[in-house]
Simulated scan of single mutants.
Amino acid sequence: MTSAAPTVADVTAKVHDIGPPGTPVTTPEVAEGFDCTTRTIYNRLSSLVEDGVLRTKKVGANSRVWWRPAATDRRQVGSRGRESGFALTRSSTPRWSVSSSGERR
């Protein structure tokens, strides 16, 4: 165990080591190996969400998971790490015509 409270960079590295982008991790998983409280790790993870490095979701009454977004994740994240919507491209709507016999063309 390390003796000092981990930096944000230490916590980021630990999340990276646990799994590839998109892998959900819990606060106790990230806290493993650090000599600090899980609350300290929770605060570091929250800071990473605010910076847009991680995403989070509440699961259950008192639990939360954290993950690094996958490269294909196109959701837009605001300055505080909150989703602001999806980055969608507009596609053309297929146009159908119907022949006199009732078939689509």
Rank of each mutant, 00 (worst) to 15 (best):
34 F>V: 06
35 D>M: 04
35 D>K: 06
35 D>H: 09
36 C>M: 08
36 C>Y: 04
36 C>E: 10
38 T>I: 10
38 T>C: 08
39 R>E: 15
40 T>Q: 09
41 I>G: 01
41 I>N: 02
42 Y>T: 07
42 Y>L: 12
43 N>P: 00
43 N>V: 12
44 R>N: 09
44 R>P: 03
44 R>V: 05
44 R>D: 11
45 L>R: 04
46 S>R: 06
46 S>T: 13
47 S>I: 02
48 L>P: 04
48 L>R: 04
48 L>F: 11
49 V>E: 09
49 V>T: 06
49 V>K: 05
50 E>V: 08
50 E>A: 13
50 E>H: 12
51 D>T: 04
51 D>Q: 15
51 D>C: 03
51 D>R: 15
53 V>S: 07
53 V>Y: 11
53 V>C: 02
53 V>L: 10
54 L>F: 08
54 L>M: 09
55 R>C: 12
55 R>H: 09
55 R>T: 03
55 R>P: 00
56 T>M: 13
57 K>R: 14
57 K>Y: 05
57 K>C: 05
57 K>Q: 14
57 K>S: 13
58 K>V: 15
58 K>E: 12
58 K>W: 09
58 K>P: 06
58 K>C: 05
59 V>F: 08
59 V>N: 02
60 G>W: 06
60 G>H: 07
62 N>S: 14
62 N>E: 12
63 S>L: 13
64 R>L: 06
64 R>D: 04
64 R>I: 11
65 V>L: 11
65 V>S: 03
66 W>R: 02
66 W>L: 06
67 W>C: 04
67 W>S: 03
67 W>D: 07
68 R>C: 04
68 R>I: 15
69 P>G: 06
71 A>N: 04
71 A>C: 04
72 T>S: 12
73 D>W: 08
73 D>V: 05
73 D>Q: 05
73 D>Y: 09
73 D>R: 05
74 R>C: 06
74 R>N: 14
74 R>F: 09
75 R>P: 01
75 R>G: 01
75 R>T: 13
75 R>W: 15
77 V>T: 10
78 G>P: 03
78 G>I: 11
78 G>L: 12
79 S>C: 00
79 S>Q: 10
80 R>Y: 09
80 R>S: 13
81 G>C: 07
82 R>K: 11
82 R>S: 07
82 R>W: 08
83 E>F: 12
84 S>M: 14
84 S>N: 07
85 G>R: 02
85 G>C: 03
86 F>V: 08
87 A>Q: 11
87 A>G: 03
87 A>L: 15
88 L>T: 05
88 L>I: 07
88 L>G: 05
90 R>K: 10
90 R>Q: 10
90 R>P: 03
91 S>H: 10
94 P>I: 11
95 R>K: 07
95 R>W: 02
95 R>E: 13
95 R>H: 07
96 W>K: 06
96 W>E: 04
96 W>Y: 14
96 W>Q: 06
98 V>A: 01
98 V>L: 04
98 V>N: 00
98 V>C: 00
99 S>P: 00
99 S>C: 00
99 S>L: 02
99 S>H: 00
100 S>D: 01
100 S>Y: 00
101 S>M: 01
101 S>C: 01
101 S>D: 05
101 S>R: 01
103 E>G: 01
